[in-house]
């Protein structure tokens, strides 16, 4: 019987510690599947963030580093410059990348570092208990904005992909979502394109993945995916913001 779907060899098989319904598991799998399909598993070095994905090094079946909070692009820069033939990626959440790590990500893009960044945006600080993040939606209730985010007091959510797409060093920037199977397949294609971009030495690549946080949003997993679609996507539109002239990946 031909197998249609089986767990990728790019993951160690260790059970994820993530909450039920958290799409970190899906995004881990997509990255791992892409590295497996590119036959780069033995040649890849990932950098884990601080945040819910802090333990990502237990799950990816390739060499992994752990970075200080927000500093994953800086560490990935060092790894890539010393070992330019390795596939180097960072995997970061929105608290990590868009708040404490804003300087690192902007300058990594500005320098056109030939690394791939997987940016998981779920509009909240998950691990620390559901505080407001730079990406929290206007009106969204969190433990530090119990009446909803008020832009007059704390400003507006950052659209990181659009910001980085203005930088010439950024070769590939795309925003995707994983709220249903069709979008999960598109997300995989974007991740593949980003890694292809690195392989072709085109420069900095980033894929922003809209994700959920059922626990801290106070929703069931199914409700949270609806919220991604109805509340987040209108503010964070999906699509490609920047891509180099490159050969399209044959893999969907």
């Amino acid at each position: 019987m031909p197998t249609v779907f089986e767990p990728t060899k790019g993951l160690t098989g260790v059970e994820f510690h993530y909450c039920p319904g958290c799409t970190h598991g899906v995004i881990h799998r997509l990255v791992a599947e892409v590295l497996e399909e590119m036959e780069e598993l033995g040649n890849s070095i990932g950098v884990a963030p601080v945040g819910c994905a802090v333990l990502a090094y237990k799950y990816f079946n390739c060499d992994m580093h752990e970075a200080a909070h927000g500093r994953a692009p800086a560490m990935a820069t060092g790894v890539k410059r010393v070992l330019p033939d390795k596939m180097v990626f960072s995997y970061q959440g929105d608290g990590d990348l868009a708040s404490i790590g804003t300087a690192e990500i902007v300058h990594a893009a500005g320098r056109g570092e030939n690394i791939t960044v997987i940016f998981v945006n779920n509009a909240i600080y998950g691990m620390t208990g559901g505080q407001m993040a730079p990406t929290t939606m206007v009106g969204q209730r969190t433990t530090t904005s119990p009446l909803g985010r008020d832009p007059r007091q704390v400003g507006y959510p950052l659209r990181i992909s659009e910001l980085l797409a203005t930088i010439d060093g950024a070769a590939f920037v795309e925003r995707v979502s994983v709220h249903n199977p069709a979008n999960i397949r598109k997300a995989k294609k974007a991740i593949r394109n980003a890694f292809d971009c690195q392989k072709q030495r085109s420069g900095f690549s980033l894929v922003e993945v809209l994700s959920n946080c059922p626990t801290n949003w106070g929703m069931s997993p199914l409700e949270s995916l609806d919220w991604v679609k109805e509340a987040m996507i209108p503010y964070y539109p999906l699509g490609n913001f920047r891509r180099p002239e490159m050969q399209e990946s044959e893999h969907a």
Binding site: P2, V4, F5, L11, C22, H24, G25
Partner: peptide
Amino acid sequence: IACANCATVCPDLVIRVERV
């Protein structure tokens, strides 16, 4: 129908799908 949608959305690698 072996579409593998269930395995695609599963965040915890629970599901394997085969074509019969």
